[in-house]
Design a protein around this nucleic acid. Sequence first.
DNA 1: TGTACATCAGTGAACGCGCGTTCACTGATGTAC
DNA 2: TGTACATCAGTGAACGCGCGTTCACTGATGTAC
Lengths: 214, 214
Amino acid sequence: VSVATEPSAQPERRPNPRGQGARLREEILAATTALMADGEATTLRSIARRASVSAPAIYRHFRDVDDIMAALADDAFDALVATLVQERDQHEAPEARLRAVGRAYLSFATQRPELYRLMFGGVWSAPAAIERRPDRDARLRAMGMDALAVIVEAIGRCAEAGLSSSTDHHRDATALWVGLHGYAELRQNARLFPWPEQTEHDLVTALARLHQAT
Amino acid sequence: VSVATEPSAQPERRPNPRGQGARLREEILAATTALMADGEATTLRSIARRASVSAPAIYRHFRDVDDIMAALADDAFDALVATLVQERDQHEAPEARLRAVGRAYLSFATQRPELYRLMFGGVWSAPAAIERRPDRDARLRAMGMDALAVIVEAIGRCAEAGLSSSTDHHRDATALWVGLHGYAELRQNARLFPWPEQTEHDLVTALARLHQAT
DNA sequence: TGTACATCAGTGAACGCGCGTTCACTGATGTAC
DNA sequence: TGTACATCAGTGAACGCGCGTTCACTGATGTAC
């Protein structure tokens, strides 16, 4: 029986150089994302472990776990809007652009379910949280509006081109958002449900009031 | 200064009589519901406290907290289907019946948000949970199907009456369910969002393919 | 009718665990003189 | 060019807490003889 080599549990992380303390902040966010991706609990201690750092080190950068989550939600909204716009701009035709936005929204929710939940699943405007941090909540709401604006504009273009009978684009975009959100959530939570293939197509067609060519 | 009367912390609960041990089971479920309604954590110990019982007493009736939640979800699905049917049957006209079902669905989700979350928000078919308790998951899924069936039928009646252009009622009911779910969730989570008044009406009209008389 | 016993419906104390948070500290790096 | 000092970026030990779970027990109620 040979003696097993002691695995170096600590990958010998060493303090960041003088002015670079902010680097750990990013490492903490990355560690939290990694934990969520693995479906593990995100406690202050588990985050610290994942970041190969002692628990109190977190306090230098965040007030508490909620503060970390808020930072992640901020980034996530930016990422969502960026991906919606990017996918949209792959296309020229108004309907293709709208459908690309819808597809991108669902992809985002599917590929980063925990992040998506963080954005729209309760942290956003949880009654108690509102009173405690009204500024943060307002900011998140504004970022959600940015995402919605992409949908509003896509529907608007379809209407201009005579492809949609939408007259109140904001109102219809809201309905479409609601539909996409419901689909994103349920597809995630009810995986064994026999989802009809065209559900995504149906939602976009119906809620954006597209003329039913297909 | 008068001596404050010691409040009797224990409302002197006493063991149920011989054959009636099952009564505590109901009390545990009620205590859990009460905790959720108050937005408090539902741990084995907090549930026991709320039920005025020692923690180990729970084990006589449930394996763990998840088991309690599963029982609640069962009851909740029954209650949902019952309320959908009941509200539907208040009306005669097909469209009124369909809209009553949608309204009842949203009311249920609004009035019992924690219960609704329990039903559709992750416990239902959480990947790990499926493998651990396939039977329970299958049962919940079947109960969800019962609720969906009410929507399918309501859309079918509208189509028969020439009010809807739906040809695949199941497919359209699925889309409507998705929309209602998204609305229920987002209205709860994004309370400060300026919801257009007609969102509910829009969703039902569009997704059930109702001819737009209004 | 009386009594020993079994069963039922729980209780109370104890355990080990991971958690958030505090505190005094450490060791490297920059700055003043 | 040297040296004392301040600051920065953390560490390590300790705390009290609530949690799930176990274990031996208790006291009332029914049952056998």
